[in-house]
Amino acid sequence: MQADSRFWKRYTKNKYLLLLLLPVLVWYVVFAYIPMYGIIISFKDFKPLLGITGSPWIGLRNFELLWDPYSGFVPAVKNTLIISFYHIVFGFPAPIVLALLFNELRAKLFMKVAQTISYLPHFFSWVVMAGLLSAVLSPSSGAVNEVLSWFGIDPIYFLGDKHWFRFTLVVSSIWKEIGWGTIIYLAALAGIDPDLYEAAVLDGASRWKMMLHITLPSLLPVVSIMFILRIGGIMDGGFDQIFNLYNPAVYAVADIIDTFVYRTGLTSFQYSFATTVGLFKNVIAFLLILLTNYAVKKAGQEGLV
């Protein structure tokens, strides 16, 4: 009862601040929770003319079709996991490393200019970036292949060769988002107590030692949270990027769950099966978040909850 009394007293004291949450709560209810009603399509043979309630129930038949070798779902899952693995291994540490490098710069003007330049690609949509990459990576007139020709290297079809497409995806994603990703790490670095560095200087520690024993340990809580969220998105290979860059020549290595759902649902009109794929993806992502959060907390770091 005492805890309830403290809660309501605190609520009453901050009621006008809590009202600011109301638009956010309304948005989530309208656009995130109410649409969850459509999940039942996964268990029905959905017919648009009959509607959701009028369409016949078919039980778990759509879930059985997921594992049909001719459905195309299993290769899409494989591609999603491989591409997400590359993004985690190479893309996740990239903004951390860049933030550490920015933190070591002493020329403030140069640091601000460098940060601004690194942020800039984030503000371009993947539609724009796809046009830019198509021009720059063109095997006939692209700047990259032009430079490679100076060294006697044959033109590379970065967006049309199955062996190069995933490499292009990862590198272009890092280029676009690395600067924006540094913001949260730079904020964490700004919160480190300067007295720690001053004490380290008095003890004769080098910049490298201070980074290893002060900066990195101070970043670990933020890195842990970001890692949990990144693992939760492992079933998301990056729809916007791939949809704007891929083509039939690279479907074998580029078709992920989201592009598969797009083609199945909106192109082939298999609404029930597409919903089933999306539901499967989200359940696995939710379980991955819980598992990663548990593992991080067991390792002694802060989790989401």
Rank of each mutant, 00 (worst) to 15 (best):
H213M: 06
Q270N: 14
F46H: 02
A299Q: 09
G303S: 11
A299D: 12
I88C: 12
V77R: 00
Y185E: 01
I234F: 12
S149C: 06
E146S: 14
T264F: 00
Q301E: 14
L25K: 10
F46N: 02
I284K: 07
P56W: 03
L212S: 12
L25W: 11
V171Y: 03
L65R: 13
G91F: 02
I34L: 15
S173D: 13
T12P: 00
A99S: 14
Y70F: 08
A188S: 11
F124L: 15
F243D: 02
M129L: 15
L137R: 01
Y185G: 00
V113A: 14
L18A: 05
I52H: 08
P121D: 03
G300M: 10
P139F: 03
I39W: 12
V147Y: 15
M235F: 09
V201A: 13
F151T: 04
I52P: 04
Y16P: 01
F90Q: 09
D4W: 15
F123W: 13
K298E: 06
N244W: 04
K13V: 09
W67T: 10
N293V: 03
F167Q: 01
R10V: 05
F90N: 08
T53E: 11
A187K: 03
F43L: 13
F102V: 06
L288A: 13
I234P: 01
D195R: 07
M235P: 00
P217I: 02
L266D: 09
L216D: 10
G91Y: 05
I40A: 09
M210C: 11
K176W: 08
W126V: 04
I183V: 15
S55A: 10
V305N: 09
P217D: 05
E104I: 05
K15H: 10
F280G: 00
S118G: 03
W180R: 06
L101Q: 12
G233E: 10
L189Y: 03
L105F: 13
Y37L: 07
F110L: 15
A299F: 08
L18K: 08
K209F: 05
L133W: 08
F43Q: 04
F73I: 00
L49N: 09
F63N: 02
L229S: 13
I225C: 04
I184W: 13
K281Q: 13
M36I: 02
R106D: 06
V89K: 11
N244F: 07
G278P: 00
L19P: 03
F151W: 15
A254E: 00
V147W: 15
A143V: 14
P217W: 03
D195M: 11
G191L: 03
P248K: 12
E177A: 07
L50G: 08
A99L: 08
V170H: 04
L22Q: 05
G238Q: 09
Y185I: 01
T182W: 01
V253Q: 02
L186C: 14
I234M: 15
M210L: 05
Q241L: 11
F286H: 09
I96D: 03
L21W: 14
P155R: 06
Q270C: 02
D258W: 00
P139I: 04
G38D: 11
F123Q: 04
S42C: 10
S206C: 12
I58P: 01
K108P: 02
W27Q: 11
V30H: 04
Y119A: 09
D236A: 13
N14K: 14
L19C: 11
L49P: 00
G303N: 09
W126H: 04
S173M: 02
D236R: 06
